[in-house]
């Protein structure tokens, strides 16, 4: 029983990381109805930037801030330079552009920073936490981080006029434009925010699995599964989905499929969600009357 509790708690911790990346995917999906397959690779690159900053002598927390800011800016640049002209393209063209970014950024990470595994320290320190039994400080920190991100996101979307403009952009870009909302700029901003949230996920993953160019690929499909389970266009659904999937992964990994099948488990979850729950848990079912 104790083991179940422990696995559940650490599942929530790892699920929080999936939730982070899933939120990043959903933010972009909501505004553009496209899935950014390069989200994980962009995040990985930002984690390398953090490690590079640490190497320059910055304290870890400051390096993390630098990495997140870097992600924010580079996310906006990528949107402006590459993604911009594919917003209204077909899903196929868009995903191909994302795959190009995916392998491009992946090889860039390897080329600049090398392909070897690199140890990456946790911002929350090593060792166990004094607050929650069974969990390490890093795991507690991951959970707190996703709660903070969710809170900030809620404040931004529901209580600022920029957040409202972003929701308007996601809902009906033409009407938003006609109301004076600078839709193009908000799409750029959305990519920046998503990239920043994704970078946080990478900073949380790196201490667990070591940093290498392919670090986020596995996390990305868990984030896909989480986003799908949550309904693809709901950030809150993505968080719930991420945590659920973290718990499922941990319990199933220990008792059902074994740890060598984790990617296959993600595949199974994705197919199961598509089959049984295509709307997801919190997906939008807008009631429309005409």
């Amino acid at each position: 029983m104790q083991q179940v509790i422990q696995l559940t708690l650490s599942g929530i911790a790892i699920g929080s990381i999936y939730a982070c990346l899933a939120v990043a995917l959903v933010l972009i999906y909501k505004t553009t109805h496209h899935v950014n397959f390069a989200q994980g690779e962009m995040a990985t690159f930002s984690a390398y930037v953090a490690l590079f900053a640490v190497g320059l002598g910055l304290p870890l927390w400051l390096a993390a801030v630098v990495a997140v800011l870097f992600a924010f800016v580079s996310g906006m640049v990528i949107e402006r330079v590459v993604i911009r002209r594919f917003h209204s393209a077909s899903a196929t063209t868009f995903v191909v552009a994302c795959i190009a970014l995916f392998i491009g950024i992946n090889s860039l990470s390897g080329w600049i920073f090398g392909h070897d595994l690199k140890a990456f320290p946790s911002i929350f320190g090593a060792g166990t936490s004094s607050v929650v039994p069974f969990l390490s400080a890093h795991e507690v920190g991951s959970i707190v981080t996703v709660v903070v991100i969710a809170g900030l996101l809620y404040l931004f979307l529901s209580h600022t006029s920029l957040g409202l403009a972003m929701r308007a952009t996601a809902d009906n870009p033409v009407s938003a434009r006609l109301s004076g909302v600078p839709v193009d700029w908000l799409l750029t901003l959305g990519w920046g925010i998503a990239a920043a949230v994704g970078a946080v996920a990478a900073l949380l993953v790196a201490p667990i699995v070591f940093l290498d160019p392919n670090m986020m690929i596995g996390v990305l499909i868990y984030a896909f599964a989480a986003a799908l389970l949550g309904g693809l266009d709901s950030p809150w659904g993505a968080i719930v989905g991420g945590i659920l999937i973290g718990v499922i992964e941990n319990l199933a990994g220990a008792y059902v499929v074994g740890n060598d099948m984790k990617l296959s488990l993600a595949l199974l979850i994705i197919v199961a969600v598509l089959m049984l729950l295509p709307q997801g848990l919190l997906g939008r079912k807008t009631a429309t009357r005409v």
Binding site: H33, H34, V35, F37, A91, V95, I217, G218, I221, F224, A225, L228, D260, M261, K262, L263, S264, A266, L267, I270, V271, L274, M275, P278
Partner: peptide, 27 residues
């Protein structure tokens, strides 16, 4: 499962399939 839905679902599911395949073959 994915083709009766519209959108990116086939790309998502097949992406996961591609990642999982070596694991499955080694099982």
């Amino acid at each position: 499962p994915s083709l009766r839905l519209k959108g990116h679902h086939l790309a998502l599911a097949t992406f996961a399939l591609a990642l999982a395949m070596p694991q499955i073959l080694k099982h």
